[in-house]
Write a protein that binds this DNA or RNA. Sequence first.
DNA 1: GAGCACTGC
Length: 721
Amino acid sequence: MGLLQSENTRMNGEMSTATKRKREDEAHRPDLNTKRKKLLETRRQLPIWSRQKDIRAAVREHDVLVLSGETGSGKSTQVPQFLLDMFKNGKIAVTQPRRVAAISLARRVADEMGTPCGSSSPASKVGYSVRFDQSTSPSTRIKFLTEGMLLQEMLRDPQMSQYSCVIVDEVHERSVNVDLLLGFLKQLLAERRQSKNPLKLIVMSATADIEMISNFFSKAHPISRGHTSADTDADEVSSEASWQGFSDDEADGAVSPDNKVSICHVEGRQYPVKTTYLAQPTEDVIDTALQRIFKIHCGEPMPGDILVFMTGQETIQSLQKLLEELAENLTRDYPKLLVLPLFAALSQPAQQRIFEPAPPNTRKVILSTNIAETSVTVPGVRFVVDTGKAKIKKFRNQIGLDSLLVKPISQSSADQRRGRAGRETAGQCHRLYTEDGFQAFEKDNTPEILRCDLSEALLKMKARGVDDVLNFPFLTPPPREAMEKALMQLLQLGALEEDGKISKIGQQVARLPLTPSLGRVIVEAATLECLAEVIDIVACLSVESVFLNVDTEEAKEKAQEARQRLFRRQGDHLTLLAAVQAYASESSDRRRWADDHLISHRAMKGAMDVRKQLRAQCKMANLFPDDSGPESDNEPPSEAKSDDILKAFVRGFMNNVARLCPDGSYKTFIGNQTVAIHPSSVLFGRKVEAIMYNEFVYTSKAYARGVSAIQLRWLEEVLGS
DNA sequence: GAGCACTGC
């Protein structure tokens, strides 16, 4: 009752809108039903439709179902609906790696079920929850969430008691979050099996790795006998070849007949794609791509757009220039060519252009980074040209440096790229490498957990009560040294006690949507009484670059002039603070202000969202001094306060300090590595006693990003605290 | 004097 009450109170503020929405929904109810019926026809055509009984039986009889299904099988939308009536007392959670996917799947499933979506009506059965946007109702039965969101929920409610079933989708992408989730869920399954409220888990992944995933779930936990399956209807289990209870398959007899994991494969629906390779490896992939694009354009009938996978902004823009020059010279016998770049840093309207239909008699060529491999679906593509390379980030824990280098992609990544040509009709994939080259690729992408700084993952585990992180059930255990390095880092931050248990500070940090270093900065700022200011800066650091890149000399001068008022000699941190304060106090036209200052409006809006969230969380954690609200006054900080702000950052980034050497270079305080100030920094080209930086990235050389000038004596001061 | 692929809380 109390809970219900507060739920109502919370909704009160929006009552008028909510009531209005409800009336609208009721008026549209016949519409919802018509839509549902119409969609039912489409659903029946999906490959997965005929497998409903199998899937239900498997979930009834086993704790875990590992389901592989290629693109177009319909698994993400249908499986939750197939299972819904089996879980009368709890919700079904469905995780997705990306926000847009979670939201659009929720909308689609709501339409298919003939129910309103999310918070639009209290009767809505399908909702979603992503950062900054939670849309559920008291009647929500199926909830789509991002992986990170479910992890946060798990920290607050370790038993996940509101869910009877968790579906983890797109596991083959192997984000750190999905690896953590699966480890936690494996432990939770064992706990909940003993309870009145057992948990079912469905893991959905690409075909290649279902065996390793089912091994993961069946191995370390001993088989439980006689678990609840009162309503089992054995007749429903079909014996199709692609369907296996694990016992049929396991030759070594390690798993008993009533094991708890089953696997199931569902065919996808893709059009055939003809694949070609080079006979000889190419020296100049841009030139080869250029020639191949023209060969396709001049040789293949219309319609059919071309999607080219490349490594980054720079190569994309140079190929775009070459293509446009050559396209000028095309005779009237050929269709026109429209070249469209696609990468994440591109403005939203520029990205939208790929969805607009091309003018008559024009073929689109989309030059894209990896963004088109998973995040963005480009319509109308019949031809894929694949350079076989991508920029891949890897953390080197010995020196605490991220490298971001061009590397060959994996075979599964190459196949994913190829699949982009067969979504609407039969297509072609032109691989700009040899078949031997393809065979030499790694089979799968290296899981992120083997490539990243582990401190955040380990802190989350500690916060969930996993004391022995070295023996955590990892799908792919990271090297011991990497984990030890991360534990050392957490200890140094004061997030762990000497005995390895999580500290009070660690608990506070783990709840924040930040890396442990940035979280520690927040906690330090609270004691130095500069929290509001530090939140503003941290908010900027956790979004894409606030200051826009400018290409031309002319634009650069203009930007320099417009931003002059914002620049602070101490460095990037106080400059970001000045930018946020100026933006926040701009009451009339913020977009125009951003444009005038060559500041990304999108990034600034993102920073304001993060700021709001961090302020709320810090208030909840009582990090603000008594009665002082999180509202900063937008006053420029005094000299002393500026120093405190930077000291707070030094507390979280003690290993990221470098001093100026007589030869004019900067060398890290720990490890004596050479580091250059990144050209995007306001300190670029300046010489100061010492610098502190948030990121240490190796691209063409080792760069420091997010840089401020500090005094070396602060280090001792901060360490004393 | 030279520039970061992509997600997520």
